[in-house]
Design a protein around this nucleic acid. Structure first.
Lengths: 143, 143
DNA sequence: GTATCTGCAAAACATTTGCAATTCT
DNA sequence: AGAATTGCAAATGTTTTGCAGATAC
């Protein structure tokens, strides 16, 4: 767990063989500070005010680099867009069909009896739940 | 579990308040017979030989209707495309990073101790694993 | 005959690519 | 200067939309 200061992020990126340009540091810092699983477009729009010459190409380049270097995970909740997450702790995502929010849920996952898996090398498990969050199920109870 | 005969599919679609046009029946039958989580494009290309006037718009319209009526699930493995699955039995998907295949894995999933979930209404859980399948991990062992 | 369904063409949207300008050392 | 990075503009690929023609009851 690294802090979100510029200096710490620079060190973290360097440790992962990523040269810490201002764009890269700011994009990584945005992911640390805003755990909302943003799309490339959301990152671009939010950082564009500060980095006024930022281009979407650079956001895409940077996110691809981060994924290649293993410091960010791409997540696929809706089909036509990729979201990004810098949190590698074991957690599931819960998409509320009411308000659209994506929650992080810290869970213990037990996967049992998958005989089919015996010779498979599992590198990553992603769990996506959907339904109604507490707020939306109170507003609009389905009983 | 319905059979993949035209008559059974017609009945099944009607039971779910979907008027069974030839296009809809053939698309649903394709999903039953080809459990490969196809994209709209793959469905279009495979059915176009038989239904020579089929359009991609109709494939999209039909898949959206199927999802709305709850007879087909959209799955999101890669970010730039939606795949479709008519199998509602509890299973996970395993994407092999070697050959690209998506396997169905029939698993028992235990989700424990999610205190954050107490007032959430979970309607759906999707599990996506990735790594190397048995064939690819033998070809290219990482030890 | 009216409502629904289908399908063409164009538009919209996310992402990628080619390449030139910029930056860093 | 040389190598890496950034960013503009155009292209690509998937999905959506508007609307006209076809189909079904």
């Amino acid at each position: 767990m690294i802090s979100n200061t510029i200096e710490d992020i620079k060190g973290f990126l360097s440790d992962n063989s990523i040269k810490p340009s201002i764009q890269r540091v700011k994009i990584y810092q945005f992911l640390l500070n805003n755990k909302i699983h943003p799309t490339a477009d959301e990152i671009y729009n939010r950082l564009n005010a500060e980095l006024i010459t930022l281009s979407k190409t650079t956001v895409y380049n940077t996110l691809h680099l981060f994924v290649d270097k293993g410091v960010v995970q791409p997540i696929h909740i809706e089909g036509n867009e990729v979201r990004y997450d810098a949190d590698f702790s074991q957690h599931a995502h819960f998409k509320c069909n009411g308000c659209g929010m994506v929650y992080d849920l810290h869970l213990n996952l037990n996967i049992q009896n998958i005989s089919e898996l015996k010779n498979f090398e599992v590198k990553d498990i992603q769990v996506l739940m959907s339904g109604l969050c507490d707020r939306c199920s109170n507003i609009n109870p389905i009983h």
